[in-house]
Amino acid sequence: MYSSSDFERLFIRYKAEAMPQGESIQDFCLRNKVPYNLFHKWYKDTRHQIVPVQVEGQPEMDTQSSKEVSSSPTPERKENTEPCPIRMMIDIRMTNGIRIQQRNLTYRNLRSLIEKLEGLC
């Protein structure tokens, strides 16, 4: 029996290895001895769970990084809009089965989470 993570890994491998060479997903599944009908059902059931996002605005920066930005030769963009509190949700799935899900994160919370995760690597 195949798990969702098995199909996820297969799909990532397909996009990295076979798709650039024009191989169909059916042929890739056949070559890897995975029944295409099971993969297709998994893909159909999960494809709407991943939503593309577009980030607008610029995250808050600490004083050190803001000095680096201000010294750059590119002109700064000034807008007369009030900063809106943006909240983020992050869902990280690792190959060893660990899943980290955090909701309602500010930019600073996200940055702190990433710093903590870097300590684990």
Rank of each mutant, 00 (worst) to 15 (best):
E8I: 07
S112N: 14
T63I: 13
N104T: 09
C84H: 09
R9P: 01
T46E: 11
T74Q: 13
P35G: 06
S65V: 02
H48Y: 08
Q64C: 04
Y36A: 09
L30P: 13
I98V: 09
P52H: 06
M1W: 09
S5I: 06
K15H: 10
S112K: 13
S71V: 03
I114G: 13
Q49V: 12
Y36G: 13
I90V: 14
E8N: 06
I50N: 14
A16G: 07
E82Y: 01
E8T: 08
I100V: 03
R13G: 13
R87M: 04
E118M: 12
L30T: 15
M88I: 08
Q58I: 12
I90P: 00
V34S: 09
T46A: 08
V53P: 01
G119W: 03
N109V: 03
Q54F: 01
P52W: 02
N109E: 10
R31W: 05
R47Q: 13
N32E: 07
A18W: 07
S3N: 03
P75S: 06
K33P: 09
M94S: 06
E68W: 10
S65E: 06
R77L: 15
E118W: 06
K116A: 09
S5W: 04
L105G: 00
R13E: 15
T63P: 15
R77M: 15
S24C: 07
G119D: 03
L10M: 04
L113W: 11
I92S: 08
D27Y: 11
R99D: 05
G57H: 07
V51E: 15
M19R: 09
A18H: 04
L105A: 03
L110S: 00
K67D: 01
K44S: 04
G22C: 06
P83K: 06
D6M: 02
R111S: 15
Y107G: 08
I86P: 02
V69T: 14
I114Q: 09
S24Q: 07
P20Y: 09
N96M: 07
N80A: 01
A16R: 11
V51Y: 00
S5C: 06
A18N: 14
W42F: 05
P73K: 02
S112L: 08
T74W: 12
V34W: 10
L38G: 15
S112R: 09
Y107K: 04
E56D: 03
I25V: 14
F7M: 10
C121G: 10
N37R: 12
R103Y: 00
D91A: 11
K15Y: 04
H48W: 05
E82I: 05
T95P: 09
R77C: 13
E76T: 09
Q26G: 13
F28S: 12
D45S: 06
S112Q: 08
Y36N: 11
E23P: 05
G57M: 04
N104G: 03
Q26W: 02
I25G: 07
L110K: 02
Y107S: 08
Y43S: 14
R108G: 00
T106N: 00
F28E: 02
